[in-house]
Nucleic acid binder design. Structure first.
Lengths: 139, 139
DNA sequence: TTCAGTGCAAAGCGTTTGCAGGGTG
DNA sequence: CACCCTGCAAACGCTTTGCACTGAA
């Protein structure tokens, strides 16, 4: 598979190695969409036994440093990871029902532009907006 | 002091009581500006001995539910609390140096308006924008 | 006198670390 | 065969909880 080849090369160029765990964890993130480290672990364990939590944390860190995955905070608890292949997007989270909707980065264009004028470069893909959807606002 | 009186009434009307700890913790948040629970604890202990961490957590929860304090996430670690008396503002955090700047909520007006059209009510005061300031971007 | 609030200690959750053994390149 | 990566277990930081006692109203 050429995906595997690309991944190996990406790792090699940083002096890192391709291992079954690393490949499985990246595929799990791509497959799950938005997943916490714990959910990634559970998914990987469904395929192969004995993958350790610390390996998941270490691997997600590596994959993120290579720009292959990204994380956002959708709750006060664990972060969620998603593939960097997905087009960049903003997350809006309802505090009532927990529903997450994805927004086009364009939605924050003027916020980004305003801060850029001030010399600040916004990481749009990390932006999480909290609030209430209409159903939850009505109680 | 009329501040104390107002606080007592606010608590009483929810069937809650005013205690020295609650008053000290609220004053600490107002005095510190942006503080983690740990920093609040340290500050309160500087004035009166033997205040417990769990009391700080429980009290911040109570004060937030009464709308007297607010919290935002300025790092992947502990949240920071600030007085609800401060005018509502957005936080921009530099990932390089950690510097925090406050923005007028107006900066996110079009983001808020766009989501409102979609039936989503944004909690602007909870918004944290991450990125890099010009100094850190230049490495 | 009542019952909300506190301190204390222990447990909880998510995450990180040290180390020795295993597997990639 | 060098050295990166893994599993394991223990420790970590922050937060929550159960309980008996204290103290506000």
């Amino acid at each position: 598979m050429s995906d595997e080849r690309r991944l190996r090369d990406r790792l090699r160029s940083s002096g890192l190695r391709l291992t079954p765990q690393r490949e499985l964890i990246l595929r799990a993130v791509e497959h799950l969409g938005h997943a916490t480290p714990d959910e990634v672990l559970a998914h990987v364990r469904g395929q192969v036994a004995s993958v350790n939590a610390s390996t998941v944390y270490r691997t997600l860190e590596v994959l993120e440093s290579l720009g292959l995955v990204r994380h956002v905070h959708l709750s006060d608890r664990a972060p969620t990871y998603h593939s960097a292949r997905e087009p960049e997007h903003i997350h809006a989270v309802c505090r009532g029902c927990g529903a997450v909707r994805s927004l086009d980065p364009e939605a924050a264009a003027s916020l980004v532009a305003g801060l850029a004028e001030d010399g600040f470069t916004v990481d749009v893909g990390h932006l999480s907006v909290f609030g209430w959807c209409s159903a939850c606002l009505a109680e």
